[in-house]
Design a protein around this nucleic acid. Structure first.
Lengths: 341, 341
DNA sequence: GTCGAAATTCGAAACGCTTTGGCTTGGTGG
DNA sequence: CCACCAAGCCAAAGCGTTTCGAATTTCGAC
C-alpha cells in the first residue's frame, strides 16, 4: 500500500493525503481525520527511501565501528552504548546504521556515507588524542557527536564524555586517604583519550599529596581479563609492590582479582582495588552490594544522550557546539580497605 | 556529483553511464573505460536511496535487538556477532541497520521494516523455544536467518547454530571421566533455546553414565557474574555439594570462580569448572593457556556465516532452507582436574 | 553502393514520496 | 452584485537512479 493507492481509495490526491499525514495546516480537519483513519486501517507506512529521496534527509544515523587490524577487539562498552542510543533513535523515527570497517578504511567509509547520502550524521566512538576523524568529518561536512573527547583537536566539535580525570583523581585520593602509598594504575591503551585523562587524574592526585608517580606502577594495556591479570601479577612481583590498584575497567579488574587470588591476597584486605564501572548490563558490578569499589557512570545513558545531541544537531545544524560532561560517582564496595599494616 | 552531472561532463546519456558503471555488456569498452575513469576522478558514488527506490531492493540488512522490559540486558555476545556479520556486509556492499526495541514492540518493528522497505532481510537473535518470530517473519515475508534454533517451530527456516547439546554432553562426559559424580549445571535462562539444548546434553550424559540428574544441581539464570556467583554459592552450601560445574558462559564462570574463592576452593583442584566460551574479543579465555576448560565456538565466525547465509537467501529467495551446525571444541584449561578424593 | 544485423547509445517512464504554485469554491465586505 | 480573499484541494515537477524500448551508428556481406 503506497501513497498513490491510499489516495485513490480515499478519492483524494496524493498531495492532500501527504499533507494530511504530514500534519500540514492547509487541510480540512474532517478530511484529515478520514485520511489518518484510512492510513491506519490499511496499515500504510510511507516508504523511507522515497521520503529520503524527496527530502534529501536520510533519517538515519551512522555508527562506524573501526576494527583495529592489529588487535581485533570490539569495544565491550559498545553494545550498551548502542542500546542507549538506539532507544533515542527509535523514538525519533531514525534508523541506526552500523558499519564495521578495518580502521584503515575509516576515512573512505565516512566519505561514502556522505556521498551516498546514507546518513544524516554520525557518532564517533573511541576517540584518540588528536583524533584525525574530527578534521575529516568537519571537512566532509557530516554532523557528528563524539563519545569522549580528543585532546589536541583544533576544531570545535560536539562531545559527551565522562569526567575521567576527576573520577580517577577522586579514586586515587580515596585510596591515599585509606593510607595507601604504593598505588598502581592499570590503564587502557594510552593513545585513547579517556586513558590519557585517567592517568592525568591519577598522577595529579598523587602529586597533590606529595607522592611520586612510579612508572613501574603504571601499566597501559588492552582492557582484557588476561592483560589485567598479567599487569597486576607483574606489579605484585615488584620488590615494593603496590597495596592498592586503580583499574580502568571491570574486565581488567576481574583479571586483577585473579592475580591477587593467585598470590593468596584478599581484595579489600591485602590489596585494595578500585575499578571503573561502565554499568554494562551484562557485567554488573554486583546487584545489591557492589563487588568492587568503583567510579561509576552509565555508558548506556551516555548513548542516550549522545543520540539526543546528534539529533538536535541534525535538526539545527548551526547551533553552537554543545558539550556534556558526566560526572562519575564513587561507589564503595568490598574491594577497598585501609592499608594493611 | 550525481549521475546526470557525470553524464553531462562525459557528453553521454545517464543511461549509458549507468550501464557502464553497472557492468552491463552493451556498452563500448572504450566508453566504459572513460566513464569508469571519470567516475573515479569525480569521486562519484551513486545515491543509495535512489538505487533503492529504482530497484526495490534496499541493500540493507536489519538486526532487531529486543530489550526485555523486565531484565534490561543486552546480550554480551551481541557486539562480536555484529562485528562478524558487519565484515560480510561491508564486503558485499550492504548496510546494516539496527533497531533497538522493547520486546513488546518487536512485531510492529518487523512489520515496519517490511512496509517501509528499510531492509531486504533480517537476522533473528536469541531465539526461544517456539519462538513466535519465525511464524511472524514468514508471514510478513521478510527473508531471515536465525542465530540459534527454535525448538518446536513448525515452519522451515534458515539457521546457524552451535551444537550446544553435543558440546555440553561432551563436557559432562569429560567431567565424569575425571571421576566426578556430583556435577552442577549453571545454565542460562531456560526459555532460551540454546539453554534448553545445553541442559539436554548435560542430562543425557549423566543418564548415559548411570547418574541421576539432581534438580538442586541445576540452576537457570541470567548469565551475569552475580547470578553465577549466587548460584554456585548456593550449590556449594548443599549438604552434598558438587565437585564439578558446567557453566553456560564465561561471565557466569567468573562469578563461579569468585564463589569458589570465597569458600577457599581452588579451581581445578577442589572444584572443576567447564565454561562455554564464545571467544568474545574483549573477554578472551586467556591468551596463551586457557583459564577455563571450555567448550569453544566463535560467535564472531557465526556472525560472519549468518550474514553470508542471509545475503545468499536474499539473492536467491527460493533456495532450499539451509542450516549450519557448528561444532564446539573442547579445550582443556586449568580449571578442571580429577575428583579430589 | 546498399541492406540488414549487430553494436551502441539514448529518451522517457518508473520507483514513492514532497513541495511549489495554481486552481476551485464559498464567503465577505463594499 | 462584484471584487477579493481564505480555505481547501490538486497537478505536476522534482529527488537520483534503473531499465524498457527505440533510435542511431557501425560494419560486414551482398
Amino acid at each position: 500500500m503506497n501513497l498513490k493507492e491510499l489516495a485513490r481509495t480515499l478519492d483524494l490526491s496524493p498531495t492532500t493525503v501527504s499533507r494530511a499525514l504530514g500534519g500540514y495546516p492547509e487541510v480540512n480537519a474532517e478530511t484529515r481525520a478520514r485520511v489518518v483513519d484510512a492510513a491506519r486501517r490499511h496499515n500504510y507506512r510511507p516508504n523511507t527511501r522515497a521520503i529520503q529521496l524527496a527530502t534529501g534527509r536520510s533519517m538515519a544515523v551512522g555508527h562506524v565501528i573501526p576494527i583495529a587490524a592489529r588487535h581485533e577487539i570490539v569495544n565491550p562498552i559498545f553494545a550498551d552504548f548502542i542500546a542507549g542510543a538506539g532507544e533515542t533513535y527509535s523514538r525519533a523515527g531514525y534508523d541506526m546504521v552500523m558499519s564495521v570497517v578495518p580502521d584503515t578504511d575509516e576515512a573512505r567509509t565516512y566519505r561514502e556515507l556522505k556521498s551516498r547520502g546514507t546518513v544524516d550524521g554520525v557518532i564517533v566512538h573511541g576517540p584518540t588524542a588528536n583524533d584525525p576523524r574530527i578534521a575529516l568529518l568537519t571537512d566532509i561536512g557530516i554532523p557528528f557527536v563524539v563519545h569522549g573527547r580528543a585532546t589536541g583537536a583544533e576544531l570545535p566539535y560536539r562531545w559527551i564524555d565522562v569526567n575521567n580525570r576527576r573520577a580517577f583523581q577522586r579514586a586515587t585520593e580515596f585510596l591515599i586517604d585509606l593510607g595507601h602509598r604504593r598505588i598502581g594504575l592499570i590503564n587502557g591503551l594510552e593513545f585513547m583519550d579517556f586513558a590519557i585523562r585517567r592517568r592525568t587524574g591519577f598522577t595529579a592526585a598523587l602529586i597533590a599529596r606529595g607522592l611520586v608517580p612510579d612508572p613501574d606502577l603504571m601499566a597501559s594495556e588492552e582492557m582484557t581479563e588476561s592483560s589485567g591479570y598479567r599487569a597486576v601479577r607483574a606489579m605484585l612481583d615488584l620488590p615494593d609492590p603496590p597495596t592498592a590498584l586503580i583499574v580502568s575497567s571491570m574486565i581488567s579488574g576481574i583479571g586483577a582479582r585473579r592475580a591477587a587470588q593467585d598470590r593468596g591476597l584478599i581484595l579489600g584486605r591485602d590489596l585494595s582495588v578500585i575499578i571503573h564501572d561502565d554499568e554494562l548490563s551484562y557485567l554488573k558490578n554486583g546487584d545489591t552490594v557492589p563487588i568492587f569499589t568503583a567510579t561509576r557512570s552509565s555508558v548506556r545513558e551516555a548513548g542516550r544522550q549522545a543520540a539526543e545531541m546528534l539529533l538536535h544537531l541534525i535538526a539545527t545544524p548551526d547551533s553552537p557546539p554543545e558539550h556534556r560532561l558526566l560526572e562519575a560517582e564513587l561507589i564503595i564496595g568490598q574491594s577497598t580497605g585501609p592499608r594493611h599494616p
